[in-house]
Design a protein around this nucleic acid. Structure first.
Lengths: 96, 96
DNA sequence: TCTACATTTCGAAATATGTCGAATTATCGA
DNA sequence: TCGATAATTCGACATATTTCGAAATGTAGA
């Protein structure tokens, strides 16, 4: 997972998907933010094939979920992943 | 930081330094665990020069501290680093 | 069915990373 | 000062990663 997050393009994608609510508010776990592959690539100066490659890497690392919805493919982060990663740096709490 | 943690040897080193207290107990922030470079390499089948290279990478990434103590060099993790990393995956809390 | 759109797969090329051994630096103790 | 121990720097090499463009795949709508 850290290897996947260790690339700046992939980290940016991950951040776009994880910033699902405004500071101070609580994220509703039922509606994690979703972006299509194309939307995720907006603003990033990167070829579509490269973007696809990075998304695949994030998915294979277990960091993001992907599902086809008509013509496009939607991506989102399972909130459990964030909890697990957060917990990794918190020794006192249980971490499997 | 994630790039530095994305290598299995470096992640192992980082974990050895971060597991500073037993599960359920509270780490005393004043006495973060310390290991010398040689101790950190024990059990890892890796050349001293490679180990040194990885430690340098972890240090440059801001993940570990290093300080000479006589003949050896001691390494440890500043607990603030763990807090910051943990917070990165916790959107509701403030993260600068 | 044909076309446009969204995304992926497949090479290929440039660059980065991980690794080692040999030589070097730093520190301590005899 | 000399030798042993601890760690680093340097140069070289093999492997991995990032990136692209071209071609292929999947889907929806005319």
């Amino acid at each position: 997972m850290f290897k996947a997050l260790g690339n700046s393009h992939r980290l940016l994608i991950f951040q776009r998907l994880s910033r699902c609510c405004l500071p101070g508010t609580r994220c509703d776990l039922e509606e994690a933010i979703r972006f299509s592959v194309g939307e995720l690539g907006e603003g990033m100066e990167i070829a579509p094939s490269t973007l696809s490659h990075h998304l695949k890497a994030l998915h294979h690392a277990g960091l993001i979920e992907m599902e086809r919805q008509g013509k496009q493919i939607n991506c989102w982060i399972d909130p459990m992943v964030l909890e697990k990663l957060s917990g990794f740096f918190n020794p006192p709490a249980e971490f499997k």
